[in-house]
Write a protein that binds this DNA or RNA. Structure first.
Lengths: 216, 216
DNA sequence: CTCTCTAGTAATTGATCGATTACTAGTTTA
DNA sequence: TAAACTAGTAATCGATCAATTACTAGAGAG
């Protein structure tokens, strides 16, 4: 009797048995969503297990500890962000987009990642966990990796990179605070989100209404 | 036998007995520091009690629940932020500072609040807790309160307010990730912090070295 | 001096959570 | 087809934590 409470990542038909590598990726996806919403300490391995439709001990045994799972989630998120940015830089290098468009396109690539909210949110939850020895160290390294990527690989002036990251942190904060799901037509909230999410606003509010009415 | 492990807020000589109102404020100060570092779920009432030099049940009984204590910490932090901003606006209204300086002075007022890191950090920990019904609701209201204050009372154009908040969120993230305490001379980290903290960089690194070598 | 608050603690409790152990069913291989 | 490995679960354990209870000491009022 597998009473399963599935979560965001587009529930594929519940399969009973699955190669470890595939199960691993599935767990990471759900863990990303739950950690992203509830934070590291606020998330239980049981919540992740339920989201992934498996038993709690299996989650723990596959990753060793909750902490190791969280670090893997962070690394996966960071990896996806870096891939997205590098792709834009590649398009610039190959002349497919103009140099003066680079910043805007990178910004769009960032906002596009909201679609899977777990990516940006689990990263942010890691950033906020700076006091933890192992998570904090990984988070700082990851943050600086992004900074160097934008400055050195993309060739963006340092203070523009700072501004870019600042915009990103505001976006993260608005998502983490749950503004898209709970603004209830508030005029100030609407204005601030319009300015922050730009053309992606519709998508953000759409993803919000999908993901807000769910358990976990 | 009062074996006391005091925390940041400039340890006054340990007094045995104290009026409730005074004790309350003392607890709020220490709770702000601990919640700011470890987050809501990551903090135990015992850690707050040790920081404040009292017993764990006393902490709980004075505020009812951990959640109520956290909300009070948030409200106190928000209050201090608003007071700081209103003071700058008042100086502008009374002509003591020029209108075109307003943004810079508000920014400085924000950065000055880093001195007591608990204020900005406990607020940020609240922002990140958007999924929680009661904390999230309060956090959203507080965030929008700051937005309206800057836009309507200070009269700053909406998109400049957005930029201002973005800069603030980057500062918060750099503090929360523990960059000032752990950058270890890294070139990129130094550059980013210089750009973000500006003239306050020295003070930030100083507070860091004071507050990093402590328990809790 | 004693009565009565007020400020505080020690002890404990029930719930929760991460982790471990011991098991089972399904799949592959020889 | 039997052996060996892989994918999974159920049961449980020890630790931790917020909260409650029941107590004690000190200060002020009469």
């Amino acid at each position: 009797m597998s009473s399963v409470t599935n979560d965001t990542p587009s529930d594929p038909p519940i399969r009973e048995r699955m190669p470890a590598a595939e199960r691993r990726e599935l767990i990471l996806g759900h863990a990303s969503a739950v950690f992203g919403r509830r934070g590291y300490s606020g998330t239980t391995t049981e919540q992740i297990a339920q989201a992934a439709g498996i038993s709690q001990p299996y989650v723990v045994r596959m990753f060793g500890t909750k902490e190791k799972l969280f670090v893997e989630v962070m690394e996966r998120a960071l990896g996806k962000l870096i891939v997205a940015f590098r792709e834009i830089i590649r398009l610039r290098d190959s002349g497919e987009i103009a140099s003066n468009e680079l910043g805007a396109r990178l910004g769009q690539a960032y906002v596009d990642l909201i679609e899977d909210r777990g990516i940006l949110m689990s990263l942010m939850q890691g950033f906020i966990q700076g006091h933890d020895d192992v998570i904090g160290r990984r988070a700082r390294a990851g943050f600086l990796e992004i900074y160097r990527l934008l400055r050195d690989e993309a060739g963006i002036p340092a203070d523009d990179v700072r501004g870019f990251l600042a915009d990103g942190m505001l976006i993260n904060t608005l998502l983490a605070i749950g503004m898209p799901d709970n603004f209830e037509g508030d005029e100030a909230a609407t204005e601030l989100m319009t300015l922050s999410f730009g053309a992606k606003l519709d998508a953000v509010l759409c993803v919000a209404s999908e993901q807000s009415t769910r358990p976990v």
